[in-house]
Design a protein around this nucleic acid. Structure first.
Lengths: 215, 215
DNA sequence: TTTGACAGGTAAGCAGTGTTTACATGAGTC
DNA sequence: GACTCATGTAAACACTGCTTACCTGTCAAA
């Protein structure tokens, strides 16, 4: 029923459903940010929040539920997909470069580095589709938009991957504007029509096709 | 425990260092192929091989060592990077499309699906660099080759990622030749010179903004 | 005031995991 | 026979996420 005990001092109650939930959430966020996801255990979170382990599962179902809750507040590509269509790929490119350079919130960085964890995987699996590919598809609205959206997502995700796996030092050493622009062109290319099956493709970009071998 | 059947050759010893090592390795490979990596425990492998759990760690250091050993026999991109430079991107594109369609060995497919696991992550971390980016860099040999190689790796890895996370049904529904060629063009674009820092860029794609904000 | 329901909180335990330890065994050698 | 030593074994260790059975403080109805 109602919980009329909210009349505590300035810092709020330390017990009660909402207070406990909030403390767990705050502790989880802080620990994930500082230690990554995989290396933070339920018991660490509980201990940091001054709360029993079982409450994590009571209030969030599981450790993964905590992650979902934390990510729910935070859009994956906030404000990037909406906006002027003419600058979409530019904005995405800038975002990608920014993430490549380890910018963004500390939490984002930490979670990027934990991206291998099965839980993150599972949560991202839904979010990447629902917060990136789906909106891109709807945003483009064109025929076969989903394939284009998927390709763009591939480029974006691949960059994260390379950063995670190799460090991407060579890319980060590049002139930032040059890299951004190259990514923009890549993303633009993802958006171009695929053409007719069987028809020879007309190269549209500013590029000479060199590797036209048949395999 | 059960008396284990001899694996492979048919007449080898079932005990002794090499025989035991081989049995563990064969069991691991079979189980990983059928069940994925993460859901196969050390005890399952040991039990399947008719061997004590501790021997896995004795002979391979850890479960991860098993994976490393299994992958060591198998190049990530076997025979793709070597060959006619003119057809490199074409071959990589074909390979990517092939993997997108779930082709390749059963083990490759299984490991692709387990790609989230931290162990796979860690092992791939080394292998993607040493078996893909490094050779690509050396192969290209050009100035700033590593950045180009990294970009190409990003596209390749991103496709795997999208398949893992979203299924990539839209991409797989595309005409295969059209997709392959689009990927080839994308990869070619990864190889093109980045130009001079600060140099005015040539008019390429549809572009709109001058506002270069932080992402 | 007494009573009883119940949300909120807790200690302990479950079923796993990867990994390590201390010990047994069996073959080859001095 | 006694010694060495690689090989194999059983049992634990230190964790993990998660669940169970129980306690407790609050509050509304009797």
């Amino acid at each position: 029923m109602d919980r009329p005990e909210e009349t505590g001092g300035g810092s709020g109650p330390t017990r009660g459903r909402e207070a406990t939930r909030a403390r767990i959430l705050a502790s989880a966020k802080e620990l994930f940010t500082n230690e990554g996801y995989g290396s933070v255990s339920s018991r660490m979170i509980a201990s940091h929040a001054g709360v029993n382990v079982a409450l994590i599962n009571r209030y969030f179902g599981a450790k993964r539920g905590l992650l979902t809750e934390i990510l729910r507040e935070d859009g994956v590509f906030p404000g990037l997909i909406e906006g002027d269509p003419a600058t979409l790929t530019r904005r995405l490119a800038e975002h990608a470069v920014s993430r490549l350079h380890g910018e963004g919130t500390a939490l984002q960085r930490a979670l990027d580095d934990s991206a291998g964890d099965p839980d993150l995987q599972a949560v991202y699996q839904g979010r990447i589709t629902s917060a990136m590919i789906d909106p891109l598809e709807a945003y483009l609205g064109t025929d076969g938009a989903r394939a284009h959206a998927s390709l763009m997502a591939a480029v974006m995700l691949g960059l994260t991957r390379v950063r995670l796996v190799e460090g991407a030092t060579a890319l980060r050493a590049l002139d930032r504007e040059l890299l951004t622009d190259r990514l923009r062109v890549l993303l633009d290319l993802c958006l171009e029509d695929f053409g007719e099956p069987g028809a020879p493709e007309e190269p549209e970009g500013p590029r000479g096709t060199e590797g036209v071998g048949e395999g």
